[in-house]
Design a protein around this nucleic acid. Structure first.
Lengths: 156, 156
DNA sequence: GCGAATTGCTTCAAGCTTAAAATTTCAAGC
DNA sequence: GCTTGAAATTTTAAGCTTGAAGCAATTCGC
C-alpha cells in the first residue's frame, strides 16, 4: 500500500502532519458545535461539558471531582458553575461534615435542558463526521486509545 | 475483525465516541504543547500559530489574510499581533495605496525565535504521538481528509 | 464628483482558560 | 488547646476567543 518509510526524520514529519490535521478537524468541529449550541440553546461547549459530567452522576460531584473529570483547572469550573447556577440549571449543595467542599448537582430544569441538548449534540456530531463509517470510527478510536496522550498518563 | 454494525443508531453512537476520544486526545496534546511553550519559551500556542503563518510568508500577510488562514476572528488577531509587536517579534508595515490595511511581518528576531520554537515543537509532537507509526499516521490523515469538517466547506 | 455600500481593522462586552495567590476549613502532632 | 500543614474552593491577573459595534478609507453606481 504505502511505501515503507525508513528514515525516522520522515516519521517525525508524518506525525507532525497528522497532528496539524487532527487539530484543524477538531477545531472545525468544535467551532460548528459551539455555534449550534449558541444559536439553538444559547449555551456554550464548556457549559455542555459540565452538565454532561453532572448528568452521569445524578447525585452530583464536588467541584474538585468536576475539574478533575473535565481536566480543567479548579478556578475554571468555579466560573462556569457560577453562571449555570445563575440560570438555575445546577445547584450547590453543602456537604455535611466538611464546610470547605460543596457538591454540585443538576436541577430538574438542568436535567431536562441537558437531555434536549445531548440529543441535538449527537445529531450534529453524526452529521459533522459524515463519511466516517463504523469501521473507520472504531479503527481510529483504537489507534488513538493507547496513545500516551489518551491514557491517564499525564505528560510529564 | 469487527462485527458488522447494522443499525444506524449504532453508527451515530460510534461516531460520537470517536469524536469524544478525538477531542480528549487533541486537548491533551494541546495542553502539553502549551505548557512546554510557556515553560521553555514563555510563549503561547496562538502566538506560535501566528508566527508559523508569517514564517511561511516571509513578505508578511495582511491582518485580513492572517485571520482567514488561522480561521480565527479578526479582532482576535489584533490582540495577538499587538503583543507580538510589543515583544519585537513582528512588525506592522503600512501598505501603500491602501491606508486601511497593514501588512504584518516577522522581524529578524521573530524569525530566529520561531526557528527555535518550531524545532522544539516538532520534537514534542513526535514524542506525544509516540506509538503512531508512519502508516497509521498516513491512514488516519487520509480518513480525516475528505471529512466535511476538513475541506474548505465551512459548516453552513 | 458624490452618496452609498464595502472593506480593513480595532474596540468592546462577555465568557473561557490557566497559573498563582489568597481564604477558609479540616486534620494531626504535640 | 495550639500550631502547623494539607485540602477545597475562590479570587486575581493575564491572555485567548467570539460576535457585534464602531471608524476610517476605499470603491462603486450614477
Amino acid at each position: 500500500m504505502t511505501a515503507p518509510q525508513l528514515k525516522p526524520e520522515t516519521l517525525s514529519k508524518e506525525r507532525l502532519r497528522l497532528w496539524l490535521r487532527m487539530l484543524r478537524v477538531t477545531r472545525q468541529v468544535e467551532a460548528a458545535l459551539r455555534e449550534k449550541l449558541r444559536l439553538e440553546f444559547d449555551s456554550t461547549l464548556p457549559r455542555f461539558d459540565v452538565m454532561a459530567a453532572l448528568f452521569r452522576e445524578r447525585e452530583g460531584l464536588k467541584m474538585n471531582e468536576l475539574s478533575k473529570r473535565l481536566r480543567v483547572s479548579n478556578g475554571n469550573v468555579t466560573g462556569i458553575v457560577d453562571r449555570l447556577a445563575e440560570d438555575g440549571l445546577v445547584e450547590r449543595i453543602a456537604i455535611e461534615g466538611d464546610r470547605r467542599a460543596t457538591r454540585v448537582r443538576l436541577t430538574p430544569a438542568g436535567c431536562d435542558a441537558f437531555t434536549l441538548m445531548a440529543q441535538a449534540h449527537e445529531g450534529w456530531v453524526n452529521e459533522l463526521l459524515d463519511g466516517v463509517d463504523a469501521e473507520d470510527a472504531h479503527h481510529i478510536g483504537e489507534l488513538l486509545h493507547g496513545l500516551p496522550a489518551d491514557t491517564g498518563a499525564r505528560p510529564r
